[in-house]
């Protein structure tokens, strides 16, 4: 737990909840009229039991889904994922080219620094709230 504590001191975005430890949840700033945004973060399961994320929702969006991006044989694809299982002690990172939370049809445009309230829904019926910050992605750093 020492490392988690250190991470919490370093980053104001780390959220502790009953379920998963969430690190650097963010929504890349998107073009003003984009009808889909993504949320990225890493999820660590500090408990002794596997946890299954079976749904997501986000305030200010019509819909949210768990999605997987992939590039194979030069073809970019995206598909819905029914469930993310985070094993005990495991960290799963939602990042470019892999898993993301797909935020569909924002009700209003987002600006840098805005907070998107995301809720993870687990197989046991519990939920976990996450605040993801809208940030401009930097490339080629």
């Amino acid at each position: 737990m020492k490392s988690l504590f250190a991470a919490a001191l370093l980053s104001p975005t780390v959220a502790f909840a009953d379920g998963l430890t969430v690190d650097t949840p963010m929504v890349p700033l998107a073009p003003a009229n984009a009808v889909a945004h993504a949320a990225f973060m890493s999820l660590t399961n500090p408990t002794e039991d596997a946890q299954q994320i079976v749904g997501v929702s986000a305030e200010g969006y019509m819909m949210a889904h768990i999605h997987m991006s992939d590039i194979k044989n030069d073809i970019a694809t995206m598909s819905a994922v029914d469930m993310i299982e985070v094993a005990a002690g495991q960290t799963i990172t939602l990042q470019h080219g892999g898993l993301h939370i797909m935020l569909m049809r924002p009700m209003e445009a987002k600006a840098e620094g805005d907070i998107v309230a995301i809720t993870l829904e687990f197989a046991d019926g519990s939920t976990q709230a996450i605040d993801a910050e809208v940030m401009r992605m930097t490339h080629g750093m």
Partner: peptide, 23 residues
């Protein structure tokens, strides 16, 4: 080539192209 309802691959590619073109 891409589509606008593309929250990951398309913006990432264009973001990297911006940096690549600057380079």
């Amino acid at each position: 080539f891409g589509f606008l309802t593309c929250p990951d691959v398309c913006p990432f590619t264009l973001g990297n192209l911006e940096a690549a073109v600057a380079e």
